[in-house]
């Protein structure tokens, strides 16, 4: 049987059951959030751009929930439960949140804010973080094997890393 690979673009999410690979490419300051329920074999992956949607509520009418950590995580949990996952079994692996540019402006980079927001929310939803590869100055690609819960991270010219 051919293994299904689903690509998750920026500010998007996808869920698979039993088998398959969820991939997100080119995480810079963005964060990839892989959630899985090992008992029921449900896996979901979200690729968020920004930490907090509340700053932008007035600016545009309809916000894409998958774009922001504060709206993407509850949505991903909700969709995974609909797909057969149990909330209490959920575990997380996260990657990204780097700062790519050499001279950063003063204060926190968007990458750091994203990681902070994601960790805060996972803690709020009582989802343990089982692996992470965050921060630093490199972009990352994340491959999430739904069957095993394994997450493989690759970088430009770097060695692959398994979470």
């Amino acid at each position: 049987m051919e293994i299904v690979t689903v690509k998750v673009k920026i500010s998007d999410m996808a869920i698979l059951r039993e088998e398959g690979i969820l991939v997100t490419v080119g995480l810079g300051s963005c964060v990839g959030i892989a959630l899985y329920d090992p008992k029921n074999k449900v896996g979901g992956l979200a690729h968020i751009l920004l930490p907090d949607s509340s700053l932008f509520r007035n600016r545009i009418n309809s916000l894409n929930s998958a774009k922001f950590a504060d709206t993407a995580i509850p949505l991903l949990v909700h969709e995974m439960v609909k797909a057969g996952a149990k909330r209490r079994f959920l575990k997380a692996k996260i990657a990204g949140g780097g700062h790519l540019f050499l001279f950063q402006k003063s204060g926190c980079s968007v990458g750091e804010k994203n990681v902070k927001a994601v960790k805060f929310l996972l803690n709020k939803y009582k989802i343990p973080i089982k692996g992470e590869d965050v921060g630093g100055s490199q972009g990352r690609t994340m491959k999430f094997y739904v069957n095993s819960g394994k997450v493989v991270i690759s970088t430009v010219g770097g060695i692959e890393k398994t979470l």
């Binding site: 080119g26 995480l27 963005c30 790519l100 994203n114 490199q138």
Partner: peptide
């Protein structure tokens, strides 16, 4: 770096 990582970081910033 990867072009996607560079562009998305700018979009976030």
């Amino acid at each position: 770096d990867m072009s996607g990582a560079i562009i998305s970081t700018i979009m976030a910033e």
